[in-house]
Amino acid sequence: MQVNGTNAAGATATGTGTSQKAALGKVAQQFEAVFLRQMIGAMRSASLAEGIGDSSATQQFRDMADARTADAMASKGAMGIAELLLKQFGDRVSDAPAADAATGATSA
Rank of each mutant, 00 (worst) to 15 (best):
M64G: 00
T58P: 04
D63F: 04
D66T: 04
T69E: 06
D54F: 12
M64C: 02
D66K: 05
T58R: 03
L84F: 09
G53R: 09
A74F: 08
K76I: 03
F89I: 15
D63W: 07
S56P: 12
L84D: 15
D91F: 06
A70Q: 03
A72S: 11
S47P: 07
A46N: 13
A82H: 09
G90C: 06
A46D: 13
M79L: 15
S55N: 11
D54Q: 14
V93I: 10
S75C: 05
A72H: 04
A72M: 07
A49E: 13
G90I: 11
D66Q: 09
E83A: 00
R62G: 08
E83M: 02
E50N: 01
L85K: 01
G77T: 03
T69D: 02
A46Q: 14
A78Q: 05
S94E: 13
D95E: 14
A82L: 06
F89E: 13
A67R: 01
K76Y: 04
R68F: 05
A70I: 08
F89G: 03
A57Y: 11
E83W: 04
A72V: 08
A70K: 02
A46M: 13
G77F: 03
L84W: 13
G90T: 00
E50D: 10
V93L: 06
A49W: 09
Q88K: 06
F61H: 08
F61W: 13
S75P: 06
D71R: 04
D91S: 11
F89K: 11
S45K: 10
G77C: 09
R68C: 00
L85P: 00
D63M: 08
D71A: 05
A78L: 10
I52F: 07
K87W: 02
I52E: 14
M79S: 08
D54Y: 07
A82E: 01
A82V: 05
K87D: 07
D63T: 12
R62P: 01
S56F: 14
I52C: 03
G80T: 01
T58G: 00
Q60W: 14
T69A: 12
R62I: 11
D66H: 07
T58F: 00
S47M: 12
A49F: 11
G53Y: 07
G77L: 00
A67M: 09
I52W: 06
S56V: 15
R92I: 14
M79T: 12
M79N: 06
E50S: 05
Q88R: 06
L48F: 11
G80A: 07
A49C: 10
D95Y: 02
M73F: 01
F89Y: 15
S45H: 04
Q59D: 09
A67D: 04
D66G: 02
A49T: 14
